[in-house]
Structure formats: structure tokens, C-alpha cells
């Protein structure tokens, strides 16, 4: 089983600063780490490998400092790490990002299963996974809460449709995007903590770096980065709290006040 995990190196959203003037993230304000949701994709990939054997390849598209996230993936047990980095990839929306990731997967060849997190903590679109699947013309399941069974030619998953969880059987190759929490067979998945020895070893591990020209035989260079993006951010604002007329009370008065609110809304 050859598994590809798509990892987005993301800043810690609680620490990162946003440059509202330029409409971009101030990348110097926080180090890049594995997107929280992708940690589960890495873990599920490793669990599947334990059952079926094979290899796990991590792929990221990021600026050079994204390498740090990939080294973390290696420390966790990923066999191979590839960083797609090039000025030509910059400014990509979900269409261009997914096109680039799909090109890298095609370049790798011989994959059976692609895993990713349901969304990223910064972009929050949940769109890149399904778009990668469409570019590769393979089936996908999004918002997967349980991987029920996986074999050499198919995977059975539970996918959140909104009203209910549906059971889907996908022929491989396929892509699944994982929710949190997620269950693998009957076990709740908890991302492992890398051992210190593995962290040290991962510092010396080789992270392959691929640029745009390296993908020229499997993709159109015009599809990358800003040039390949169909959307433009025209304005960005910091969110200021809604002007709530906050009243602070304590003790018995609190209960009275809550009752007043409920009564004014005819709930009691």
C-alpha cells in the first residue's frame, strides 16, 4: 500500500500576526508546524501501513521553512518527505494549490491512497482535498470520521454528510479527508508523540525539494501559484468583537438577569 499524506505547514493561529495592510500572514510571527487536522492523516497513514505494509510519503507545498513540518512527519514515522517550494507556487488559491499537489502525486506515481486533514486551521476551506481528487479523477470522501476497513483495492469509510454519517466504499486509488476526532477500525486515533531519538534522526533526514520545473512533464506551469489562481483577495479585515452591550452581574442577580432574558424571548 503506497500512501501519500498531504500536509499543510501552518502557523499556530493563536500566535500568528496578520498583516492587514498587505493582506497576508506575517510568516515571521510564528513557526510553521503540521496543520492540526493533518496530524490525524499522518497517524492514520501510519496505522494503515502497520496493517498492510508499504510506504508513506508526505507532500507539502510551502515556503522553504515548511521543511520543519515535514521533519516532524519524518520523526513520526513517514518514510519519505517532499517539499514543493518555488516562487512560482506562491499566491495560490485552492484551485492552484490542489492542481500543484495533484501534479506532485502524479509525478510520484503508483499511489493507492491519499490522506489529508478535512481542512486547515488558517485557510479553513476544506476544499483542497476534494479538488485534488477531481484533478486526479479519483473518488474521494470528505469529513471522514471513521476508517472502517482498508484493503489492497478498496477502503470503507464513514463520512459526515451533515444530516447523517454515510458508509462509503471507495475503489483505490482514492482520497479521503479526515475529521477530528477520527476512528480507525474501532480505535480512536490519537496522534503519536515522536520519540526524542526519532526527532534527532529526522533533523538529518533528507527532505526532497521539488520546484515548478520538476513538475513540468506532468502539469502546465500556468496552473501554479497566483497565475493559476481563479480568485483574488481584494480586502482583509481583522475581526473586531461584535459590539455586545456586555452586562456583568454576580450571584443571585445573575439568575434574575438570565430569567429576564429568557422571558423577553418567550422561552419561559
Amino acid at each position: 500500500m503506497n500512501i501519500v499524506v498531504l500536509i499543510k505547514p501552518t502557523p499556530d493561529v493563536t500566535k500568528v500576526r496578520f498583516d492587514v495592510e498587505r493582506g497576508v500572514v506575517d510568516r515571521s510571527s510564528a513557526e510553521l508546524e503540521i496543520n492540526q487536522f493533518d496530524l490525524y492523516a499522518v497517524e492514520v497513514a501510519l496505522l494503515i501501513k502497520e496493517v498492510l505494509g508499504g510506504s508513506v510519503t508526505a507532500v507539502s507545498m510551502a515556503p522553504p521553512q515548511g521543511e520543519r513540518a515535514l521533519r516532524d512527519a519524518v520523526a513520526r514515522g513517514v518514510d519519505k518527505a517532499i517539499l514543493l517550494t518555488d516562487g512560482r507556487f506562491a499566491g495560490a488559491d485552492t484551485l492552484a494549490t490542489s492542481y500543484t499537489l495533484a501534479a506532485a502525486v502524479r509525478k510520484l506515481g503508483g499511489y493507492d491512497l491519499i490522506l489529508c486533514g478535512e481542512k486547515s486551521v488558517d485557510g479553513d476551506t476544506a476544499h483542497v482535498g476534494p479538488e485534488v481528487a477531481e484533478h486526479l479523477n479519483v473518488p474521494h470522501a470528505a469529513f471522514v470520521t471513521r476508517v472502517v476497513e482498508v484493503s489492497s483495492n478498496k477502503v470503507v469509510v464513514e463520512s459526515d454528510y451533515g444530516d447523517a454519517y454515510y458508509l462509503l466504499e471507495l475503489q483505490l486509488p482514492a482520497l479521503i479527508s479526515l475529521s477530528r476526532p477520527v476512528v480507525f477500525r474501532d480505535r480512536v486515533v490519537e496522534p503519536r508523540t515522536p520519540r526524542l531519538g526519532d526527532v534527532l534522526k529526522a533533523r538529518r533526514a533528507r527532505v526532497e525539494v521539488w520546484d515548478a520545473y520538476y513538475l513540468a512533464d506532468v502539469a502546465d506551469l500556468e496552473g501554479f501559484g497566483l497565475a493559476g489562481s481563479a480568485t483574488r483577495v481584494v480586502r482583509v479585515f481583522n475581526v473586531f468583537e461584535k459590539d455586545r452591550n456586555s452586562i456583568t452581574v454576580s450571584g443571585e442577580e445573575g439568575v434574575d438577569r438570565i430569567l429576564e432574558v429568557l422571558r423577553s424571548r418567550r422561552l419561559v
Partner: peptide
């Protein structure tokens, strides 16, 4: 969740933004 899974497939198919 259904719409956020279907929409991107359609957009990627039509090579447009979402």
C-alpha cells in the same frame, strides 16, 4: 459538509474558483 465536499469537485472540474 455535503456542499463543502461537492462544491470543490465541481469547481476543479470547471477549472474555476470557489
Amino acid at each position: 459538509p455535503w456542499g463543502r465536499s461537492l462544491g470543490p469537485r465541481v469547481a476543479a472540474h470547471l477549472k474555476t474558483g470557489i
